[in-house]
């Protein structure tokens, strides 16, 4: 029982990171039909920005801010202007393939210009084991969960309670009508890229202390976020949250109770089951889109 509690809490912690990355993924899809196959690398890179800032002598907190800012600039503004805008004219598929190329380019660049070795990364939250109801829970798991949930709540507040959030949703649901009402559609799309860049940077700060900073560390994360987004419902931010948390817990339980070797297969089985029996995702709605 105590192991189960422990596994569920640490699963939710990992799941909240998946959720952050998956939310960004669905936001980009909704506002600009971008299926970002480089999303995992988008989580890998900010950690290297932060490491580079620390190597340059900045304290950890300042390095986080610098990493965030660079992330917004490069993974937000530059990504949209230099890759998405020119490629989207040619269609959704060419853009998706371009993001695959970007993912390779990012991995190889980090390997080439930083290091192929895994780099240790400081943790925002000290790791202390707490004894709760007989279970051992690490403060790091709780901290990750708290920051993850905090970010999700803040984002939900923005999207559902503010005028800008409504304008962003309107842009995602019906861009033509949004334009007719004078909603600055282009600016709203840019906001979603900036939010995605912010989310991946937060995910990077949370996940890198656990998995170390390595050029390949985005691979599993990108796949997990992709699965979480599809499981939850590709066109729903709420779906991405549920999908992420569910995947984190399932992943953790599978590793302990099934086998570590088959661990990676379980999320994929979940994905297949959802695609077979509920293709719109757990919370998603069937989408009509004329392409």
């Amino acid at each position: 029982m105590s192991t189960l509690i422990n596994l569920i809490i640490s699963g939710l912690a990992t799941g909240s990171i998946y959720a952050l990355v998956a939310i960004g993924f669905t936001l980009l899809w909704q506002t600009s039909q971008t299926i970002n196959f480089a999303q995992g690398e988008f989580v890998m890179l900010p950690a290297f920005f932060m490491l580079a800032a620390m190597n340059a002598g900045f304290p950890f907190w300042a390095a986080i801010l610098i990493g965030m800012a660079l992330s917004m600039l490069i993974l937000g503004v530059a990504f949209k202007r230099m890759l998405v805008d020119p490629m989207l004219k040619h269609g959704v598929l060419p853009l998706a393939i371009a993001t695959m190329a970007l993912s390779l380019a990012m991995k190889e660049s980090v390997k080439q210009f930083y290091s192929a070795e895994a780099q240790p990364f400081p943790s925002l939250i000290p790791s202390i084991d707490l004894h709760v109801l007989g279970a051992v829970v690490s403060t790091q798991s709780l901290g990750v969960l708290a920051v993850g949930i905090g970010a999700v709540v803040a984002l939900q507040f923005l999207l559902t309670r503010t005028s800008v959030g409504h304008q962003m949703q309107a842009t995602a649901q019906n861009p033509t009508t949004a334009r007719i009402l004078g909603i600055p559609v282009e600016r709203m799309i840019m906001y979603s890229f900036l939010i995605n860049a912010g989310l991946v940077a937060i995910a990077s700060v949370l996940v890198t202390p656990l998995y170390l900073a390595k050029f390949t560390s985005g691979e599993t994360l990108g796949l997990a976020a992709f699965i979480a987004a599809i499981v939850g419902g590709f066109n729903q931010v709420r779906g991405a949250i549920v999908g992420g948390l569910l995947l984190g817990v399932v992943d953790n339980l599978a590793a302990t109770y099934i086998s570590t070797q088959y661990r990676a297969a379980v999320p994929l089985m979940l994905l297949i089951a959802v695609i077979l029996f509920r293709p719109q995702g757990l919370l998603g709605s069937a989408e009509e889109r004329t392409v």
Binding site: S163, H166, Q167, Q169, A170, Q173, N174, T176, T177, A178, I180, L181, I183, S285
Partner: peptide, 14 residues
């Protein structure tokens, strides 16, 4: 020409 997943009130506000 509506925003199907927003509430009626939020649609009007836009």
């Amino acid at each position: 020409n509506i925003f199907p997943q927003l509430s009626v009130r939020h649609n009007i506000e836009l």
